[in-house]
C-alpha cells in the first residue's frame, strides 16, 4: 500500500524529516506532497540517499514525489 506524506506548506526541513521518517519505517512506496521547488529537490535527494527510485510531477499546488 502506498503511504503518503503531506508536507505541503511546511517549512524546511520538515518535509525531508517527515520523508526520512517514513522511508526508515519500511520499503513501501511513498508519495510525498510539497509546495516549493527546493523542497521537491530535497525530498528527491533524500530518496536517492536511501537508495530508492523516484519520479516527480507538478501538481495544482506544488509537486508530488513518488518514491518506489
Amino acid at each position: 500500500m502506498m503511504k503518503e506524506v503531506d508536507a505541503r506548506g511546511l517549512s524546511c526541513p520538515e518535509p525531508v524529516m517527515l520523508t526520512e521518517e517514513v522511508l526508515k519505517s519500511g520499503n513501501e512506496p511513498v508519495r510525498v506532497l510539497v509546495t516549493e521547488p527546493h523542497q521537491r529537490m530535497n525530498v528527491e535527494k533524500c530518496a536517492k540517499d536511501h537508495g530508492r527510485k523516484y519520479t516527480s510531477e507538478e501538481t495544482e499546488d506544488g509537486f508530488a514525489v513518488m518514491i518506489g
Partner: peptide, 13 residues
C-alpha cells in the same frame, strides 16, 4: 526542538 516535533504549521497558497 524539530526532532521533538516542532512546527509552525502550514503555509497556504
Amino acid at each position: 526542538a524539530l526532532k521533538k516535533g516542532f512546527s509552525l504549521g502550514r503555509a497556504h497558497l
